[in-house]
C-alpha cells in the first residue's frame, strides 16, 4: 500500500499516474476517454499497474479529476481539474505563477501564490475557440490528421491571419484562405496563433507562466507562440498532458498522509 493514484478523465483522453510515497512517477497510462469512463479508468489502472509491476493492493489512495471524476467508483476522493493542474504544476515550479491549461474542450487560467494556494481562476466562456476542439475542427476542415498540425505549422514562412472569434467563422475564413491560394502550413500556423489569442483574452497574466494539458504536449509550437505573445518563456512541466492526473495523485498522497496522522 505504498503507491498513490491520480486519474484524470477528460473530455477527450483519460490519463492515469501512479506515484510512490516520495511523489515520484512510477507508471502512467493514456487512453481515449470513450463513453464508458469507469471501464476506461479500469483499463488505465490495469495498464499502469502492469507497467510498474504492482498490484491493486499496492494503491493506498486514489483521487480522480476531469469531467469524468465522479464516474470512477474506486476513487477515494475527487477534485476539479483546476485544483489538480495547479497542484501538479506547482510541484515542478514551486513559486507564484499562472498556469494555463489548454484542454480538449475548455481552457483554464489558474493563479497560484508562492505557497501553492490558488488565488483565482478563470474558465473559458462556453465556446470552443482557443481549445483543442478548435484545432480538431480546423484539421477536419483541411482534411489533415490533428497529429500533423504541429509539424506543418513549424514549416510556415508566412502566417495566415484568422480573425474570427467563433470556430465556425474561423473555419469559413480558412475556406477563403484556401481559395486565395495560401499554403496549408501558413493557415495551420494562423490557427495556432488564434488559439494563443483566445487564451490571452481570458485574463491578465503577470509574472511566471506555466503551461499544462494535452494540446500543449502535442503541439510544442504553441509553447513558442505563447512565449512570443506574452513576452516571456513559459515554463513547461514534464509530461504536461498528465499534469491533472499527477496533481490528483499528489492530492491522494497528501490525503492519505493526513488520514494516517494521529488525531
Amino acid at each position: 500500500m505504498s503507491h498513490y493514484c491520480g486519474i484524470d478523465v477528460g473530455a477527450s483522453a483519460a490519463k492515469l499516474v501512479l506515484i510512490d510515497a516520495g511523489g515520484k512517477v512510477v507508471a502512467r497510462a493514456l487512453r481515449r476517454s470513450g463513453i464508458a469512463y469507469a471501464e476506461t479508468a479500469e483499463a488505465c489502472l490495469a495498464e499502469a499497474l502492469a507497467g510498474a509491476g504492482l498490484s491493486r493492493d499496492d494503491v493506498a489512495h486514489t483521487a480522480s479529476t476531469g469531467y469524468g471524476r465522479h464516474n470512477i467508483p474506486w476513487a477515494n476522493d475527487s477534485s476539479t481539474e483546476i485544483a489538480c493542474h495547479g497542484r501538479g504544476v506547482f510541484h515542478h515550479f514551486p513559486r507564484a505563477l499562472a498556469v494555463i491549461d489548454i484542454g480538449a474542450q475548455d481552457n483554464k487560467v489558474i493563479h497560484i501564490d508562492a505557497s501553492g494556494r490558488r488565488t483565482h481562476f478563470k474558465m473559458n466562456r462556453k465556446c470552443a475557440a482557443g481549445t483543442g476542439a478548435f484545432l480538431e475542427e480546423i484539421a477536419y476542415r483541411m482534411n489533415l490528421d490533428v497529429g500533423e498540425l504541429n509539424r506543418l505549422a513549424e514549416r510556415s514562412t508566412k502566417e495566415a491571419s484568422l480573425g474570427s472569434f467563433c470556430t465556425v467563422f474561423a473555419a469559413t475564413e480558412i475556406l477563403t484562405r484556401i481559395r486565395d491560394g495560401e499554403k496549408v502550413e501558413d493557415i495551420v500556423k494562423g490557427a495556432f496563433r488564434s488559439v494563443v489569442k483566445r487564451v490571452m483574452e481570458m485574463d491578465v497574466i503577470e509574472g511566471d507562466l506555466a503551461l499544462s494539458g494535452g494540446v500543449v504536449a502535442h503541439n510544442p509550437l504553441l509553447v513558442k507562440l505563447i512565449g512570443e505573445t506574452f513576452g516571456r518563456e513559459p515554463l513547461v512541466p514534464p509530461d504536461p498532458q498528465f499534469m491533472g492526473a499527477f496533481g490528483a495523485a499528489l492530492f491522494a498522497l497528501e490525503k492519505s498522509r493526513k488520514e494516517a496522522m494521529p488525531c
Binding site: T80, A83, F121
Partner: peptide, 16 residues
C-alpha cells in the same frame, strides 16, 4: 448554458 462547465466552475470556486 453548459451543465458540465458550470458544475466544474462552481466546484473549483468552492475548493478555492
Amino acid at each position: 448554458y453548459s451543465d458540465e462547465q458550470t458544475r466544474t466552475n462552481i466546484e473549483a470556486f468552492v475548493e478555492q
